[in-house]
Design a protein around this nucleic acid. Structure first.
Ligand code: ZN
Ligand code: ZN
Ligand code: ZN
Ligand code: ZN
Lengths: 172, 172
DNA sequence: TTTTATATGTTATATTATAACATAACATAA
DNA sequence: TTATGTTATGTTATAATATAACATATAAAA
């Protein structure tokens, strides 16, 4: 089970996450012979500013402020599409939001654990799960092509906070 | 693995699907002491007119034609919310669309197999899958509360059609 | 340099969903 | 049966998300 869950939910040097993501993006673009333009890189960087997914219009606002120019929605959606086609970002359908992929070159489950409290989203690749889904599909004679799995709940940090708050209440 | 996959993908007496759904809805509403008003019943019936999910505005169009009156979006969304709260319909996040639930009283996986070709969506409840997701969540110290699983691919019928078309082409 | 392909800018609009407040229908009790 | 509270719907306006269509600019190739 490959996941960035620990990084997402624990204090860490997030600058390293960002640098790694940009480095991977540069490599991948070079490899594929496509261009990581300033706009595209900025959008990727914005999506990596935290481990919480961002809506397209949030990205637009921030990019507009960043550049001082007003940027229209199509520019953002194009950059997101470009990055998404390369597997560098994912769309979270339930949230209409986008997030950077921590392992664009690995096998994917397109599985996210999304915290209802803090909004963070950890990505998980889970071979056994993929097998279960593939088997279920075959049983139903369904030719599986892609999948979107979104789990909602409480991340370790928020879960702990809730527990402590409850205990505090009980004692107070 | 509980599923309505066969009904969805094979010719069948769909009137029975509709009647069963409305009957379940009536029972559930009586049981819960809430009212299945004409609007709500119509929306449920429209969502059950086929095994393909419908957008809210498609429902609006059809209900407007059906009644001869113009119905505004809030009426549709309210009916959908009512039905959804009772577990009688589900939202497919990837499609911004809604579909009737074939087994509102059973355990759920919130798993759908959605055909990229014909748009049909079969619902599946899969205990083993739920266990895998629960285990993965525990491993990540994630307190799982709800889930949305959407599989995309080709349904048995469309898969067969594709195969035949390919064969035909090869022979032609 | 000319040509071609790619990327971005710009305007307008489509699509999906909800806020806020008014009215109507229903249920219950005086 | 009227009054009263509750639930449901009507109505208007608008928020939020996403794309179409066409113009311009930039980069790469010939
Ligand atoms: Zn980080
Ligand atoms: Zn990923
Ligand atoms: Zn049917
Ligand atoms: Zn269901």
């Amino acid at each position: 089970m490959l996941t960035n869950s620990r990084l997402v939910h624990q204090p860490h040097d997030h600058g390293r996450c960002i640098n790694a993501a940009l480095s991977r993006a540069n490599n991948l673009c070079t490899e594929k012979g496509v261009r990581l333009t300033p706009t595209r890189e900025s959008v990727l960087r914005l999506l990596w500013q935290s481990h919480q997914p961002l809506g397209a219009y949030q990205v637009q606002d921030q990019l507009s402020k960043l550049t001082g120019k007003s940027i229209a929605p199509p520019t953002i959606y194009r950059a997101i599409e470009f990055l998404s086609d390369l597997g560098l970002v994912h769309r979270l359908a339930s949230l209409n939001a986008y997030i950077g992929c921590p392992f664009p070159n690995s096998e994917h489950s397109n599985l996210f654990m999304i915290c209802n409290s803090c909004g963070s989203a950890a990505e998980v690749a889970h071979t056994a799960l993929n097998d279960v889904l593939q088997n279920a599909s075959e049983k139903a004679q369904f030719k599986l092509e892609s999948q979107s799995i979104e789990l909602f709940g409480l991340c370790p940090q928020c879960s702990q906070d809730t527990t402590q708050a409850t205990e505090h209440k009980a004692h107070g």
